[in-house]
Design a protein around this nucleic acid. Structure first.
Length: 227
DNA sequence: GCGACAG
DNA sequence: ATCTTGTCGC
């Protein structure tokens, strides 16, 4: 295992080799425990700067009432490379995660779960490190082929890689582009979409990650003015 | 070599 | 991802 604090020092080829190792540990069994708390996690940053703002919001489920927020301001030198997003964002997310008083039963990350060339999207990677069930909810596709889902809310089509279903193109709202939902770790394909479905209220983006996104942008702006 | 490419 | 106001469509 590689300590997340050392991710910054990895070369892209070492990061890819690590993903191939972690792949063997993925568990896509049903989450049998009831869900009381769900979390959303996200990162924000200013272009050209190394500072990253991480945030996690905990909400009750299925009522979606916010009960806790944790943030961390950190810095990254690992560049954004398609397929290696986790190495750039996870260290800061873990810092925020450690500050939580109430651990969530499941976490939603902004990005892919197993809908990734090596099945190691950021949601899967984060789930493996924390041992918390996780789901990936991305605003665009990274890996896998799909047919455009129907136009009605909650219509969905499978995201396929060869014969394997990695997730779904999910129409969260009518007249909006679909989002891409895939299981991360310790949760099943169908449970992932079902849970995300229960987190859609008035917007295209599910509440956990939508609120986490608002949170990290808030702290980024305030930090930018203060310093 | 060409095209794809989460945030 | 972030930078940004108004504006077109339902």
């Amino acid at each position: 295992m590689i300590a997340p604090e050392k991710y910054q020092d990895l070369s892209p080829r070492e990061a890819i080799a690590y993903q191939k190792e972690l792949r063997a540990l993925i568990n896509l069994q049903e989450l049998d425990k009831p869900i009381r708390y769900i979390a959303g996690a996200d990162i924000s940053f200013n272009k050209y700067e190394e500072t990253v703002y991480a945030g996690i919001v905990i909400l009750t489920y299925p009522d979606l009432i916010v009960i806790e927020e944790a943030t961390a301001i950190s810095s990254t030198t690992f560049p954004y490379l398609s397929g290696l997003l986790a190495f750039r964002e996870i260290p800061a997310l873990l810092e925020a995660f450690k500050k939580l008083k109430q651990l969530p039963d499941v976490m939603v990350l902004d990005g892919q779960g197993i809908a990734h060339e090596r099945r190691l999207g950021i949601a899967t990677h984060f789930g493996l490190l924390t041992d918390i069930p996780s789901i990936g909810s991305a605003k665009s596709r990274l890996h896998g082929l799909y047919e455009e889902p129907g136009s009605k809310p909650f219509d969905k089509t499978p995201l396929l890689s060869k014969q394997e279903t990695l997730g779904f193109a999910f129409r969260s709202k009518a007249k909006c582009k679909p989002i891409f939902v895939s299981p991360g770790h310790k949760i099943s394909l169908n449970q992932s979409v079902e849970i995300i479905k229960n987190c859609i209220t008035k917007y295209r983006i599910p509440e956990p990650t939508r609120l986490a996104h608002l949170l990290v942008n808030r702290i980024r702006i305030e930090h930018k003015l203060k310093v």
